[in-house]
Design a protein around this nucleic acid. Structure first.
Length: 385
DNA sequence: AATTTCCACAACCGCACCCGG
DNA sequence: CCCGGGTGCGGTTGTGGAAAT
C-alpha cells in the first residue's frame, strides 16, 4: 500500500514547534477536540502534517502529562516493567500515570539503560552480563532462571490476556468498569482523544511478581528444578472460576492458581479472593502481544492492592508491610538501594562514590539478591496466591 | 573566546494494525 | 474478502544546550 506521508507534502513545516504553533494547536483542540488529525492542521491554521500535530499533542501539550525528572518509584517501575515487557513503551507507559511512552523511552535510553549497564546488568535481558552457569555463585543460575521465567511469564500473560479478552468479547453488555480507562479508551473511543486517565496500579507487574513468588515457593520445596518446559498457556475458564496453572513451573495441578470470580468476565466488584493486608484479586488490564509484534492494550486479570497507588510507596508490590508472609518489599528495597546509589543525585549513603568494578559487582548482586532473598524468605504455599 | 564533543530530549519516520466502506 | 484511510507504536535522527578542550 502506498500512502502519502507527511513529509512528502510540500510546504509543510518540520522540526521543533514554536510557542505560537503550540498555542494554535492547544486552542484548537480545547475548542473543537482533535477529531481527524489529518484535517486538523488546516482547520487550526497550522502548516504541519496531522501526524506531527498528534505527536506534539500526545507527547507534549496534553494537559495530563507530568513533566520533569522521573522519581525513584518511576525508575523502579520502568526497570521492572522493561524486564517484563521489553521495549514496549506504550505498554510500560500505561502503568506510569501521566508519563508518555516517548518520555519513558527517552529516559530509558539516556539514563536507565546506561545505569544498568554500569551495574553490569544487560539492559536488554536484565541478566548479569558476566553470567556463566556453574562458574559463579549459585545466584547466577538462579538469576538466569528468574529472567527466563520472567520471559515466559510475559508470554504467558499475553496469551492469557488474549483469551480473557476473547472471553469478554463474547459476553453481551459487559458491566461498566470491566475495562479500565485506557482499554475503554482504545476499544470504545478509538479515534478520539487519548485516554486521560491511566490505571493506577502496576497490575501486570504485580501479577508477574505474584507468579514468580509462587514459583519460588515451589522451588523452596524442591520441586522446581528442571521444570521449565513450556510457556504454553492452559488458562481455563469455567463458569465460576478462572484458573491459571503455573505452566512452565511445575505440572502439579494442585498448585494451580485459582482466580475465583463470579463469572468469566472478571467484573470489578465481584472479587471473591482476598489476600492478607487487603490485597485482592481484581480485574485489570494488561498488555498483550498481538500477532506480528504489534502492541495493544487488552484486558485480563491481576492481583492488585486496593490501597491507592499514589499513596503508598510500595503499593504496586504485594504489600509486604501488611503481610508478613509476603516479603515483597525486599525487592523494592534492593532497587531503591541500587538506584539511589547510581542516580545522579546520590543518596547520603553513597554520595560522591564512583562506581568501580567491585561496587558495580555489589550492585549487581544486590539486584538479584533482592529477588532471590525474597524467594528464600518466602514460605511455601504463601497466601499471596 | 572559539571550537569540539557530549548529552538529553523532541520530533520524525516507516511499519503494522484497526476499521469502515 | 479486499482496499485504503486513520492511527498507534517503536526505532532513529536532529537539534540545542552544557561541558570539555
Amino acid at each position: 500500500m502506498v500512502k502519502s506521508q507527511c513529509f512528502e507534502k510540500v510546504g509543510l513545516k518540520k522540526g521543533p514547534w514554536t510557542p505560537e504553533e503550540d498555542q494554535k494547536l492547544l486552542a484548537y483542540i480545547e475548542e473543537h477536540g482533535h477529531g481527524s488529525w489529518r484535517a486538523l492542521p488546516a482547520e487550526a491554521g497550522l502548516r504541519r502534517c496531522g501526524k506531527s500535530c498528534r505527536l506534539r499533542w500526545t507527547n507534549y501539550l496534553r494537559p495530563d502529562i507530568k513533566r520533569g525528572k522521573f522519581n525513584l518509584q518511576e525508575e523502579q517501575s520502568i526497570i521492572q516493567l522493561h524486564a517484563l515487557l521489553g521495549n514496549r513503551w506504550s505498554a510500560i507507559a500505561t502503568h506510569l500515570p501521566k508519563r508518555t511512552d516517548n518520555e519513558i523511552k527517552n529516559y530509558w535510553n539516556t539514563h536507565l539503560k546506561k545505569r544498568l549497564d554500569k551495574m553490569g546488568i544487560d539492559p536488554v535481558t536484565h541478566k548479569p552480563k558476566a553470567d556463566s552457569f556453574g562458574s559463579g555463585s549459585g545466584h547466577s543460575k538462579g538469576a538466569a532462571n528468574l529472567s527466563h521465567m520472567a520471559q515466559w511469564e510475559s508470554a504467558r500473560l499475553e496469551a492469557e490476556a488474549r483469551l480473557v479478552r476473547e472471553s469478554k468479547l463474547s459476553v453481551p453488555n459487559p458491566p461498566k468498569n470491566i475495562l479500565s480507562s485506557a482499554v475503554s479508551a482504545q476499544v470504545s473511543n478509538k479515534g478520539s482523544a487519548p485516554p486521560t486517565a491511566r490505571p493506577q496500579c502496576l497490575d501486570v507487574l504485580k501479577a508477574w511478581q505474584g507468579v514468580v513468588f509462587s514459583m519460588f515457593s515451589v522451588r523452596s520445596s524442591g520441586s522446581l528444578s528442571g521444570s521449565l518446559e513450556s510457556p504454553t498457556s492452559t488458562l481455563n475458564f469455567s463458569e465460576n472460576a478462572l484458573a491459571i496453572p503455573l505452566v512452565g513451573v511445575q505440572k502439579n495441578p494442585t498448585t494451580t492458581l485459582a482466580f475465583a470470580t463470579n463469572n468469566a468476565t472478571c467484573n470489578r466488584g465481584t472479587t471473591t479472593t482476598e489476600f492478607d493486608g487487603g490485597n485482592q484479586l481484581e480485574c485489570f488490564e494488561k498488555l498483550k502481544e498481538p500477532a506480528q509484534g504489534k502492541r495493544n492494550l487488552e484486558s485480563s486479570m491481576a492481583i492488585h492492592d486496593i490501597s491507592p497507588y499514589a499513596s503508598d510507596h510500595n503499593a504496586w508490590f504485594v504489600d509486604s508491610s501488611a503481610n508478613e508472609n509476603a516479603p515483597m518489599g525486599n525487592i523494592i528495597d534492593g532497587f531503591s538501594e541500587i538506584l539511589a546509589c547510581n542516580s545522579l543525585d546520590h543518596s547520603p549513603t553513597c554520595s560522591g562514590e564512583n562506581i568501580n568494578d567491585n561496587y558495580a559487582g555489589n550492585l549487581e548482586d544486590n539486584y538479584w539478591n533482592s529477588l532471590l532473598n525474597l524467594v528464600d524468605a518466602s514460605p511455601t504455599g504463601s497466601s499471596v496466591f
